[in-house]
Structures are given as structure tokens and as C-alpha cells.
Design a protein around this nucleic acid. Structure first.
Lengths: 255, 255
DNA sequence: CCCCGACTGTCAGCGAGGTGACAGTATCGA
DNA sequence: TCGATACTGTCACCTCGCTGACAGTCGGGG
């Protein structure tokens, strides 16, 4: 099936299309950005900076007030440093102009840009302020000075990144062991904020490496079973407990 | 997700045992341990400690000489600290007694145990010295002191963990976008040391969430195409270039 | 207000891969 | 040297999910 007759050219064009932030965001690009978006320092679980840190450092951090719709950082460029969102929401998106797809949302307390900066890799998505937003920014030099002056913060930052690594590991395991229904359940459960996942089915499908019709079928089944409410551009989790049960099921059913 | 264990009768072994009536360690356990084993600080790519660091710190690190077959650290228990392998090889395995499955190997320069220690989670596998091995050990206090006294090392450690996070991300994308052949190619390419992957097909299949017969079929196809040599308990990569081409193919074949 | 673009809902057909089973073979310990 | 115990190689059958297409619905901009 994968004989020597495949067109190397079309494959290459496909790959190149992914790398440039072109017009039509290919599924693969959406998928990659969406998964990376799940690896930010989430407030509550694994934020490297506590609110006490932020207040203590407030004077030495650059404050950035972003007007609604403003781009805070742009995908494709190397990360200028670390962003800490203090108020408002930032929408993470891929793709140009009208064809852009939202792959995630940053909320107050979230920290992003650190991994890209540490590794010198380009940011995979663009962040825009949804309403008015207040961010704190550390450039590379500030970041180094922060870690140098505050070893406790350095230590906690290490813990934060380690936690993100562990959750990425967990997602690998989730993705491999389950049927599509299990993957969907796992994705919804840890992507939800306040019981709602505000992503279109197309994006969810891309994140799972699944086809949209297949995803839709699973969603409707789960809705019929009373676990979800499928709405326009979002999914509401109704019965999280049962949903966790779906995730736990072994991969294939068979008598 | 939680770590595995090495001792029959522990809670986790019991829970995993419930999922399948199975006797051998459940595939899910093997899979999880195998993926975590791929997230150690590999020498060369993302080791937090340079050899110069190690020599500079040699006096303050605890040296541990492990006789062949000795257990260096045991799965299921919380990590006592960070292990740096200086000489020899450590075999990472899951499962009790004779039924154990090897999920990875540590080589000179590799660093492990840091993530589990940082997060307070149990180690998912047991490490045994294959031949004679020399390890350096830092307990939690030593680790904290190291990061406190050497900010440059703390900074590099952060970079190392960030690199491991990025590679875990990359694996998620690899796993979702490709056909089974693509997944196999990706797995073999970055699991190989000196062109050889020394894991049985059962373990490889578990890592990919695939069935062994399916994996075997793909391996034989790749062998027929001259890219691999399938041997007893290991796979030898013959033509890495072509294998990289297989990995790049889009997900599904289609006229 | 209406229209256009984006999103959801659904279908028939097909191929990839899972399942369980069984035979052959390499490896290791007694 | 001889089993016991893995591991590999392969089969027929069947399910899951992908493909491509089309109709219905929501929502924002002119």
C-alpha cells in the first residue's frame, strides 16, 4: 500500500503548506497548535507563579494593557518571552484572516510563551485579547533575572513544566488505549472550563486526529445518553461522572 | 494517570488486574511505563547536567555502584531523588518476577527520576543494572541545594524538561496524524540506539496502542521494502532515510 | 432584514486495523 | 541436552472509523 509510487511532491507541498501560516489552516496545523495550547501553565493546576509572586514582582514586570482584538503575540515568530495573563481572556488561533480557527483560550493566571522561549521555537498560534486584557511580560533577560533572584520561583517553575510534561504523557496514554468515544470523553473532560468546551467540532476532530462525521456521531450518542449537550460551537458537559466512566472503558468492545 | 508497580498484590496491580482478567501486566500498564520511559533526560539531546557539571559536583553527589542485576530504583514507590547514570546500562521494566516486560534502557549520561520526584508521583518502572553500573544519586535535599547553588544548572534543567515536553507534544501529533505504518516508523526512528530497537513486538505494539498482528504486518512490509531487519526481540533499522519518508506520509491512503 | 459563511447533522460504501487462534522458532534454565 | 517459555509469523472474520457529499441551521455584517 505504501509502495514506491506515492507522489513525494504532493507530500512535500502538504508539509510546506503546514509550516507557513498560509490561508487554509490544514488539519495538521490546527491539531498541533491545539495540543500545544493545552500545555500552558493553567491557573490552579500548575502555574509557576503564585498570585503572591505576581504582586511581589509587580513593580519589576512590564505591564501590557491590550485593547479588545489586539494581538498580544503572533504565531510563527520566536517567543519574545513569557506572558502572564492577569485579567481578561486571550484567544489562541491559527490561520490567516477570516479562515482562522480558535484552538484555545487563556484565562487570568495562565502563563504562556515560556516553553517556546526556552527552546527557541516559534509560537504555534496567535493570541488576541477577547475583551480588554491585562498581561505581564518578561523578556528573556527579565526571565533569567527572575530565576536568578528568586530560586524558589525557579524551583516552582521547574515543577510547573514537569507537571505539564506529566499531563502530556497522560494524554498520550489516553489517546492510545481508547476507542474514539473514550478519546472524546477524555478530551472534553480536561478541556472544559465551567463545564463547557467552547470549540467547534472541526477543531475537536482535528485535535483527536478523527474525522468530523465520526466525532459528530460519538457526540450525538453521548448526548442521547444524557452526558452532553451539543450546541452551536460548543459542547456542554451534563454528567461528568458518567463521562469519566466512558473514558475508562477498554479499547474495543468484544464479547 | 498513575505509575505502575512491580509487586503483585499492590492496589494498582489489583485495579489493573480488574480491567482485564489477564495474567501478564496489562497492556495499558506496559504502554504507560514505556511512554514515560521515553521522557528521561537523554544524553546528547536534553540532559540537564553536562559532563563538566558532573565532574565539578562529583564530590557532593552520592556514588552508587550497582552489581549486575541489582535493583537501582523500584517501581511503585515515590522517587527518592534524581539518578544520573555514569557507566553501564539500566534496564527499565514493569511486571513481577518472570512476567516482567522491559520498556526501556538507560545509558551513560541519562538522567531519570527527576519528574517523578518533582511531582511526588510513584515511579512507573523498576530499574535494574544490566552489567555493572555506576550511578550518581541526589536526594530531594541535594537536588534543592544543587539548584540553589548553581542557577545556571537550574536554568538548564528547566530547558531540559521543556525539551522533553516539546518532544512529548511532537509524539502526540505523530500518533494522531499517521497511519499505523507512519506511527511505527516514527516510533522506531526515535527509539533506536545505534540503529537497533531492542524491544519485543509486544511492547512496541502496546506503545502504539496497536495489536501485535497489525504491528507484525507493518514490520514485515517495511522489511520487504528493505528499510528494516526484523529479528528476535529487536528490530534493526537498515534504511533510515526511507523510513523517515514513510513517517511523513499523510494519514490515510486514498485514490 | 436578509444573505453569506460557518457550523451541525446524516448517509452509503469501503478499507484499515482489531480479535482470537494456532503453528513455528529462538532463548534460557535445569 | 532437553523442555519450558517466551517471541515471531500468519490466518479468516468482523468492527470501527474514514471518505465524500449534501441538507439543514445558526449568526454576524451590509
Amino acid at each position: 500500500m505504501h509502495g514506491g509510487t506515492d507522489e513525494a511532491g504532493s507530500t512535500l507541498a502538504h508539509v510546506l503548506g503546514l509550516l507557513r501560516g498560509g490561508s487554509a489552516p490544514a488539519d495538521a496545523q490546527v491539531r498541533e497548535a491545539a495540543w500545544i495550547a493545552r500545555c500552558v501553565g493553567r491557573s490552579g493546576s500548575s502555574t509557576p507563579l503564585g498570585s503572591d509572586d505576581v504582586t511581589a514582582l509587580a513593580g519589576s514586570l512590564a505591564v501590557h494593557h491590550a485593547a479588545p482584538g489586539t494581538v498580544v503575540f503572533a504565531g510563527g515568530h520566536p517567543s519574545s518571552g513569557v506572558w502572564v495573563l492577569r485579567e481578561g481572556q486571550l484567544e489562541l488561533s491559527v490561520g490567516a484572516g477570516r479562515r482562522r480557527v480558535v484552538v484555545g483560550v487563556l484565562r487570568a493566571g495562565d502563563v504562556d510563551g515560556d516553553i517556546a522561549m526556552l527552546l527557541g521555537m516559534p509560537l504555534p498560534y496567535t493570541a488576541r485579547a477577547v475583551g480588554a486584557a491585562t498581561c505581564l511580560h518578561l523578556d528573556r533577560a527579565d526571565f533569567d533575572r527572575l530565576l536568578l533572584d528568586h530560586p524558589a520561583i525557579a524551583r516552582r517553575w521547574l515543577g510547573s513544566v514537569a507537571g505539564r510534561l506529566a499531563s502530556a504523557q497522560g494524554r498520550i496514554v489516553d489517546l492510545l488505549g481508547c476507542s474514539l468515544a473514550g478519546k472524546v470523553a477524555a478530551l472534553l473532560l480536561d478541556e472544559a472550563r465551567d463545564g463547557v468546551v467552547r470549540l467547534p467540532q472541526r477543531t475537536l476532530a482535528a485535535m483527536l486526529g478523527a474525522a468530523r462525521p465520526s466525532l459528530n456521531r460519538v457526540l450525538k450518542e453521548l448526548e442521547r445518553d444524557g452526558m452532553l449537550a451539543v450546541e452551536y460551537g460548543q459542547v456542554r458537559i451534563v454528567d461528568a461522572q458518567s463521562l469519566r466512566g466512558v473514558r475508562a472503558h477498554p479499547s474495543q468492545a468484544h464479547p
